[in-house]
Design a protein around this nucleic acid. Sequence first.
DNA 1: GCTATCGATGTCGGTTATCGTAATAAAGCC
DNA 2: GGCTTTATTACGATAACCGACATCGATAGC
Lengths: 117, 117
Amino acid sequence: MPTDLKEAEREILLSFWKVHILHHAGESPVHGQWILNELREHGYEISPGTLYPLLKRMERHGWLQSRSAPGGGARARRDYTLTAGGRELLVLVREQICEMYREVVLEAPGGKKKGKA
Amino acid sequence: MPTDLKEAEREILLSFWKVHILHHAGESPVHGQWILNELREHGYEISPGTLYPLLKRMERHGWLQSRSAPGGGARARRDYTLTAGGRELLVLVREQICEMYREVVLEAPGGKKKGKA
DNA sequence: GCTATCGATGTCGGTTATCGTAATAAAGCC
DNA sequence: GGCTTTATTACGATAACCGACATCGATAGC
């Protein structure tokens, strides 16, 4: 059982969450705490010290745009929405996901091709 | 065309390459230079200063196992093969890829569902 | 045999990401 | 007014990532 994988596998999975974040931000505004809860429900945990800088960075890169709740103070909830640049990135990422899916999942031994368990 | 994304998108794509590396290592032994070439052919580039420590780390984590070419010196070609632990990780990662594929690709507006342009 | 080149891996210093924990701030309840 | 809840932000330490450079063995020219 990969217990000690849990620590290291994030190196890979973290960027998967990033994709999910971008995707969700394209459907409806998201905010940090919601993401933290969402992941925790799925059994994964990401540190606030990772997530919030991450969101800031994505905004700095022009992928997301944030809007602080009106009237709230400096620490009011901050909603993030996908920008046009983010959509472009997501298009590119989707292509890569498809390639990865085809190659790593479909072509896997006993993969999804036959739905065999 | 997202030109300036090229720099930042790696934050996401790099871990995709990691998955590809693990997958390929499961089919036949791979070595650093081959990976570098392979990626370059696909239009992407990863620094040796990133890749080689990465491979070492994967071995340290027990995902890969390396075997140096016999007779060669300290810098002989080093072939990496997937271990049992790596296969376990890959199973886990495949599940996540499926989820990401379903959610981010299939459910995308104008996604693969209808193949409509 | 000497040197140049090629295939390949390793190393270095600086920059950036990630981590867990703790601090902060507004809002709701009583 | 206090207390809990919902959120974000700050901080110090560790680790990853990068490009450029160094290294090493084999091979080719001559």
